[in-house]
Design a protein around this nucleic acid. Sequence first.
DNA 1: GATGAATGAGGTTTCATTCAT
DNA 2: TATGAATGAAACCTCATTCAT
Lengths: 237, 237, 237, 237
Amino acid sequence: MATRQRPKSAKPEPGAAARQPRDAVRTREKILNAGLREFAANGYSGASVEAIARRSGVAKGLVFHHFGTKEGLYLAVQMRMYERLRRRQNETQLEGLGPVEGMRRLVIDTFRGFREMPWIIRLMNEENLHRARHIRGAEAIPALYNPLLAAIERLVAAGREQGLFRADVEPVGFYVALSGLGYFYQSNRYTLGTVLQVDLGEEARIAAYEELIADMVLAYLQGGGAPFPTPPARDGG
Amino acid sequence: MATRQRPKSAKPEPGAAARQPRDAVRTREKILNAGLREFAANGYSGASVEAIARRSGVAKGLVFHHFGTKEGLYLAVQMRMYERLRRRQNETQLEGLGPVEGMRRLVIDTFRGFREMPWIIRLMNEENLHRARHIRGAEAIPALYNPLLAAIERLVAAGREQGLFRADVEPVGFYVALSGLGYFYQSNRYTLGTVLQVDLGEEARIAAYEELIADMVLAYLQGGGAPFPTPPARDGG
Amino acid sequence: MATRQRPKSAKPEPGAAARQPRDAVRTREKILNAGLREFAANGYSGASVEAIARRSGVAKGLVFHHFGTKEGLYLAVQMRMYERLRRRQNETQLEGLGPVEGMRRLVIDTFRGFREMPWIIRLMNEENLHRARHIRGAEAIPALYNPLLAAIERLVAAGREQGLFRADVEPVGFYVALSGLGYFYQSNRYTLGTVLQVDLGEEARIAAYEELIADMVLAYLQGGGAPFPTPPARDGG
Amino acid sequence: MATRQRPKSAKPEPGAAARQPRDAVRTREKILNAGLREFAANGYSGASVEAIARRSGVAKGLVFHHFGTKEGLYLAVQMRMYERLRRRQNETQLEGLGPVEGMRRLVIDTFRGFREMPWIIRLMNEENLHRARHIRGAEAIPALYNPLLAAIERLVAAGREQGLFRADVEPVGFYVALSGLGYFYQSNRYTLGTVLQVDLGEEARIAAYEELIADMVLAYLQGGGAPFPTPPARDGG
DNA sequence: GATGAATGAGGTTTCATTCAT
DNA sequence: TATGAATGAAACCTCATTCAT
């Protein structure tokens, strides 16, 4: 119903005259960021467009002008979240590291990413509550763009070639396990804290957990299963 | 699906006078179960008391009569959830199994528990969204009652004593890791499915994942680090 | 979503104790009447539930409690309108009048009915704007209950039997024409007044118009076509 | 459907400078036509400026630029409607027909006009809902320009002079009756269809109705009342 | 214990209109 | 002339909660 397109007019020199078109983009951005915070804090139903408008400093109607509906804004927020997640994953520095050290860093940095951006977890949980209904149609998301999966595949291949890692690692399952080790600590931090009567925010505990999950992943890769390439073929292959 | 149990009230003699209280308990139970489903499906904010009343087949006012507020019912639902979780964990059969086989079964059965009762995950996530605000005050919840943690500690101790497992396992961190491996697969099933373009519900994939996480946990316990309490030095050992 | 049923409990003696159930009916009635006025005055879109609540002296939410949606209330108003129209048509006194005088009275009284209850016209026009979408499903409305049509058929039959009226009167078309003569004067009173620069509300003009349309209808019935039962054959003749 | 005419502006020489004003007129016209359709479809309150802009393919602000307010556009639409109605009435071919045949054609063609342009009825009803508030001030509308009334007066005078028609025909009342016979059939087509359980759109029914109303009007003119000039004088005494 | 009428606050959304460009 | 961002008011509707019965 509203127009919600970026003006795409050739970028004018930044000055007083150019204010309007640029401001629209800036406004959109402000709303998006406010929406991200609000949805992360309260979930979809708990978030209020009123609050988002207030956070953005704009009139409530403007939110609808730019994003159509609350759901439209929510979807935009989800997309933005995946964008940020990918960007963060790309920042993990693996150059010059061998498979073992690289994998250790990958595990730990994935965990750190979740701790740095806890809103990612909240938004993901929310979308899972809705059975991924909103993002299912979004074509920009799928796996090829997933730097973490790509990094995993590179490291596992290198490790296998160097005879350091087992040969039968199924990348998707391995990716899920690796992520889950970091995700859960952060996602369930509060209930775990209550149930176990500990503070999962303590530095020492976090450091110990980093070691633990890195060890666990590497122990799996290095040890156990099959020291040499035997056809494991769990899934179908 | 829900095992309607009459909580502790001494069974009154069956007669006209006794009918009323008995029905009241049954009504409470119906509301509680409906609330459980509604909160699991829609989160706290997304759930509506109206819908819960409809699901229970009672008048809306009755929900308030029994639970005071929406929040009161929500808290009762959380308690019920932990109760069910504990009961499920108690059902894992470990008798007669050695540390290795026991741990394997524990990992796999924990994962299975999450798949059998996905509403547990939804309710836990919801409570984490609220930073455990509601359950924090509940004294019935903490760790002593946690059968999973207890089982872990028993198995790890046995394994260590038999020289099968490393000696430096920190139980809380290990518990988090073990749980996370199973939890995440189920909790993020929908977004992972979309992002990775796979169906995490496939039997074959689930079976493979069960092997993977059991292997991973055991590789950690058995391998690497230090069979005996030596300074951590995990990676290079 | 709301319950909206009449309590159907056996009517209690009217007293203080009986207030509540009866008040619900009274409240419904107040809202319905206010809705009738509001929809008649402003049309469906122009009417506001807020205004209806204010007119009824109840909270806005209560309107929805009783009627579900604005559209639900609107439909109830339409039904009420047809009810009133029928009741009014039943009040036309035709006993003891011959076909000619009876028909004259019928024409004039139909016209008077529209003048007495101008809101009927407004509500009918509104529903025609919506192509009768709302009332189409209502089974209580159709023709059998239409006292005007019934009266027409009786009078026309009597007139034909007495050799006073033509024999080939098609009741539905005749009903439409008879109604239209009265309806239009009232429905288009304001634009006609402006366009023709006259006041259609003047007593004298109204009296003259009553004569005119009665004459016109009777001239049609008595004259023209066929004074005696000859084969109808307008269409193909 | 809409005959886009360029109103009276002297045709400028086709060139760059002349393009602008020409396009402005075209734009105005597009908006006006879109407004006509939108107001006819949804009434004044139900119509949205946004929808009108969309239908016209212009920006919403432009509607206000050209017509000031929604009400301003609505008034322009009403004027345009009367213009079209007059034009249509002027098209009725009466040359060479005597009073009887002429009147018959007039009745039938008036009815046909309403069927051809149902939006006229919708717009008129809307304005009557507002008690002609908007058009009251418009000086361009009144009776002198009304071709139907003029034609009636001519035919009635001719009929009277030839001794065919009664002498006491009051033109305004007669005009209302004649119009009403055709108007009502179309204006209430949908509710009548539902209430009477017939389809008023059927060709055969329409043809029969045309005969009926022509007969009725002529029976009135030719018959009944007073074959010769008796004191008529209801209105002006 | 149980019902359902009733309320008041707040939810999302629409909309006529203004204004800078 | 034309655009579209921006606003503020009001729209319909939902909801947790209260209360008389």
